[in-house]
Design a binder for these strands. Structure first.
Lengths: 133, 133
DNA sequence: ATGATATGTAAGATAATCTAACATGGTTTT
DNA sequence: AAAACCATGTTAGATTATCTTACATATCAT
């Protein structure tokens, strides 16, 4: 079942393709990398190679930027969202199993600290998935 | 419902990526194009750009070559398979509608002429789809 | 043995990408 | 208002990827 993750994280696209798919300039894409919002793979010849996940993430970043959020903010948001997702995944995995008190505390703390608008972008997130069946 | 087709026929991959995905050399890929087994799009700068469909097709070609079939044979096979698929699609589309006698005759004729092993490769065909969810 | 087929390889040209540096228009901060 | 900062544009020179064309070669069929 994690084959899907492998596929989506497979580095396939050079920056030119990513530019078209995301409508971002190369400068922007590299700038976001510089600020560690993404970390694409590299070919043997040092060319960047992006995965579907990377592209989704770039679309998300674009969305957040449109909302006026700066690099630092986006970095935090993506981080929180990541752990949120891994939590949900974990929760689904052992559906019946109880969550440890510690995990629960962390989850609640995050929900409190970063409440409000946080998942608006997740509507746009799967945007790229429309390109692949 | 044809959005899927659009996605799968979207030119995204440079030849380098295709080489890795198909384990064919650039020489081979261009040679097959020369013999009109595929016709990838081109970028503004004349670089070839391949779609998911193209890559599937290359995997199919590879399979047919392994079976000892030559360019001319593969060309015909792909052609027949194409019309076969469009027929099936059409058949599914107007599921209830009767097939015209003419179409039926063509379908039967093809099944007779190209019977036997013809769909063995279609097992390998969707091979690439494992890369995308 | 001859010829055709599929692929390898080399050369020179062009395109795409890389890094690094400086430029710039909008925001903040002082 | 001036200074500093942020996100992006632009340029330059270097490197890698791809293109076309041509010739080489091994395998297979005639």
């Amino acid at each position: 079942m994690s084959g899907k993750e492998i596929r989506r994280s497979m580095p396939l696209f050079p920056i030119g393709t990513v530019m078209q798919l995301t409508e971002l300039t190369a400068r922007q894409i590299r700038y976001y990398e510089e600020h560690q919002l993404i970390s694409p793979a590299r070919t043997e010849g040092n060319r960047r190679l992006y995965s579907l996940n990377d592209i989704d993430r770039l679309l998300e970043i674009k969305d957040l930027i449109d909302q006026g959020i700066n690099m630092a903010g986006i970095k935090q948001l993506l981080l929180v969202k990541e752990q949120q997702e891994s939590l949900l995944e974990q929760q689904a995995k052992s559906a019946k199993r109880e969550v440890t008190d510690d995990e629960l505390r962390k989850l609640l703390r995050n929900e409190l600290m970063h409440s409000g608008r946080l998942n608006r972008s997740s509507l746009r997130q799967g945007d790229l998935s429309r390109f692949f069946h």
